[in-house]
């Protein structure tokens, strides 16, 4: 997933730790792992070593159940939690169409280029699961 990284020289990241972010960080929704899930993928952010596991069950094409197991910062964890709520009921095509901006909208915050990768780790992990990328 390639994306344009722009550096805003005066942006300082003020106020990204809003209540909803901290709430999802401390109380992750759909936390855990589905046994024998239809799809599962584990990935990590090589820059920081943060880890992400997602498992998904489908009703035909639509997500019926999703679990996330994040191990990392508030941003990647909250993003996983919020995304897990959003995925239910979506079909694979709709998920594959989701973009960076959709994640920003869900989180309701603006991030600098160094932290965007944290926020996108959950979505990219879900997409890899759907594409059939396999963990070794």
């Amino acid at each position: 997933m390639k994306q344009e990284l722009k550096v805003d020289r005066d942006y300082v990241g003020e106020g990204i730790y809003r209540e909803n972010i901290l709430d999802h960080y401390k109380n992750v929704r759909n936390l855990g792992k589905i046994e024998n899930a239809d799809l599962e993928f584990h990935d990590l952010n090589p820059i920081c070593g943060d880890e992400m596991t997602v498992s998904l069950n489908f009703d035909q094409d639509k997500v019926r159940e999703v679990k996330v197991l994040p191990k990392g910062c508030a941003i990647s964890t909250a993003s996983a939690s919020i995304l897990s709520e959003e995925l239910k009921g979506k079909n694979k095509k709709e998920i594959m169409k989701m973009k960076t901006e959709d994640i920003f909208k869900l989180l309701g915050i603006k991030l600098n280029s160094m932290r965007i990768k944290c926020a996108l780790l959950p979505l990219s992990t879900v997409k890899k699961a759907i594409c059939g990328v396999k963990n070794e």
Binding site: V12, G13, Y17, C48, G72
Partner: peptide
């Protein structure tokens, strides 16, 4: 309870 990235981001607010 606080990830290093989150500490660094808050420190960055003060440069």
């Amino acid at each position: 309870g606080i990830h290093g990235h989150d500490i660094a981001t808050i420190l960055d607010e003060e440069n």
